[in-house]
Simulated assay, not measured.
Amino acid sequence: MKALASAALLIALTGCGSSIAASPSPASTPATPTATATATEWKIDPAFNATDLAWIELMIPMDDQLLRVLGMAEQQAADPAVRAFATQVAAGHRAEHARFVALRTRSGLPVRNPHEGHDMPGMMTEPEIVALGKSTEQAFDPLFEKNLKEHLDQSIVLARSITTDGKDAETKQLAASIMTSRAAQLKQLAAL
């Protein structure tokens, strides 16, 4: 199971063009920026391994996108319980997002999104987000709940691989926290 989770993370990341995940040893070799990064090289903190770095680079856009979708749910959901749940989840994700940004800064990663425009598990495509935004109240709730469940499920899979294959202690701690919070959110979502 451990190997499967790690393979899923690396496939998700390397399949999306993350040069960090594909790097043999970012701790020992300065990574070369891609076209989306600055023209200068950056130094990666050796406390982080490639799995840590790839996860950070994936979770920031995943959280960015989910916060956007949660904002829609706070305004458009027909069920007041769904709106309240979206507000609760958004508060936790904003705090989590800040932790990811701090980890990215500490790690030495550049500010970039190597996953922009990719169709990945746990992330809606831009056309799906637009369609969700145009949904009527009755159609909105089940579509939102389906996509939120996919995000929560995928976040657990990715975080599990960090707890086993990550290197940085703070990153591993965040991953363990995400596994716990996402499991609780899945139970709450199922009860809506």
Rank of each mutant, 00 (worst) to 15 (best):
M1N: 11
K2W: 13
L4F: 09
S6I: 13
I20T: 10
P24I: 15
S25R: 14
P26V: 05
P33I: 01
T34L: 13
T40W: 11
E41Y: 10
P46V: 09
F48P: 08
N49V: 04
A54H: 04
A54G: 10
E57G: 03
L58M: 05
P61F: 02
L67Q: 11
R68Y: 08
L70C: 01
G71T: 02
E74H: 12
E74G: 13
Q75V: 12
A81I: 05
V82H: 10
R83Q: 13
A86I: 02
V89Y: 07
A90F: 09
A95K: 14
H97R: 14
V101N: 09
A102V: 04
P110T: 13
H115E: 07
E116W: 04
G117Q: 02
D119V: 07
M120R: 02
P121H: 01
M123D: 05
E128K: 00
E128C: 01
Q138T: 08
A139I: 06
N147M: 12
N147L: 12
Q154F: 00
V157S: 12
L158R: 06
L158N: 00
S161K: 05
S161H: 03
D168Y: 00
A169N: 13
L174V: 10
A175D: 07
A176W: 06
M179Q: 15
T180H: 14
A183K: 01
